[in-house]
Design a protein around this nucleic acid. Sequence first.
DNA 1: TTGACCGCCTACCGATCGGTCGGTAGAGTA
DNA 2: TACTCTACCGACCGATCGGTAGGCGGTCAA
Lengths: 202, 202
Amino acid sequence: MKPQKTPATAEKLIEIAESLFAEKGFYGTSIRDLADSIAIAKSSLLHHFHTKENLYGAVLKKLADEMTEEVKAVQKQFPNEKKQIFEFVQLLCNNSEKKPNRENIILRELLDNPKRAEKAKKWFFIDYFKGLTDIIKSGQSNGVFKPVSPEIFILQLLGAHRYLIISLPTVKQFFDEKIYRQVLKDHHAELETFVRERLIKK
Amino acid sequence: MKPQKTPATAEKLIEIAESLFAEKGFYGTSIRDLADSIAIAKSSLLHHFHTKENLYGAVLKKLADEMTEEVKAVQKQFPNEKKQIFEFVQLLCNNSEKKPNRENIILRELLDNPKRAEKAKKWFFIDYFKGLTDIIKSGQSNGVFKPVSPEIFILQLLGAHRYLIISLPTVKQFFDEKIYRQVLKDHHAELETFVRERLIKK
DNA sequence: TTGACCGCCTACCGATCGGTCGGTAGAGTA
DNA sequence: TACTCTACCGACCGATCGGTAGGCGGTCAA
């Protein structure tokens, strides 16, 4: 998991690992699959990342760092918490289209983490989570947000979004074709209404 | 997967499989683990359920049947859709405390289903999902619910709940001890407010 | 020129995977 | 008694798992 000097192979590995772990999970993905996918030997993979767990950790770290950075960027770009939170909803919806693996990996990690946590003793997404609850807390102390529990609100917001996203491949068969194209747009609008009604003070 | 005459062993298997699959996922659980857990030989497990997939399918089917039945019971017990939907929220929250494995397995199944779907070509939770959207549609045609998309609303509601539940083991370290005891109660209240504001016509 | 290091390889390891096989004990039935 | 069926078992299978050992060619500093 140490930074490598020649980035090409290690970065390619993280990239392919992100998509395979997202699709099939940690135990469903073998390091043979991963190595074959970018046409290197399995032992070359292990040369870069000493163990399978390390590679998985590198994937999580990269993901968590990106996401934390995005939240910070939103905080920096907009001065008031109202704009920040709506911008974040926008970000969520955009990223689910551009980077569909993310939600899968995050969900899988939440499911597996309690077991893994005994060894790892850390949660990669802590800064991301704290960044988000901080926006809520800040908005509350400035009097623009209602006094909801920041943690519960964020978890429900993330959940409403991520669950829908990972359900879509399965449930899309139940939408009419022309309705389905509207779903992501309507979902986005619903999330915004949720934020407006449950969080924003009138 | 055929029904067995001597229920004891097969049912014990489904029971232990439900908790192990929930905890470690399909690929993370071996049939040796499962057999050992109830002290029978691995070949005896395969005598009852011809393959590991069959056993997993039996677990899903039992779960889906129970949940579909619960929704139907709510529909039957209460005449109007407003009471039905609040009763369902109550049901969700109660079951997450009584049957904590459920949410895990459902989430894992949603994540793995797109891959599995090629073979299985069926989704065990379809009746459950349809039952819920039917409540919304019925309430809408009776004029007591707002014209939201039934599918999106249900997915967001389920998501807000299930995501929070599976996150709790990981994020509970960020709650104060005395606050944490309130979380499930506050979460329940928030879900009800969400339903009241986004669904119920005033 | 040498030697340390690097990225990558083939060959191999023991452990474990899902699943098969032949067989046994016991209950039911004719 | 003889036959059948069910639940269960230990022994075994080929395949695959994560990981190790050692070697090869190239780069670069001493």
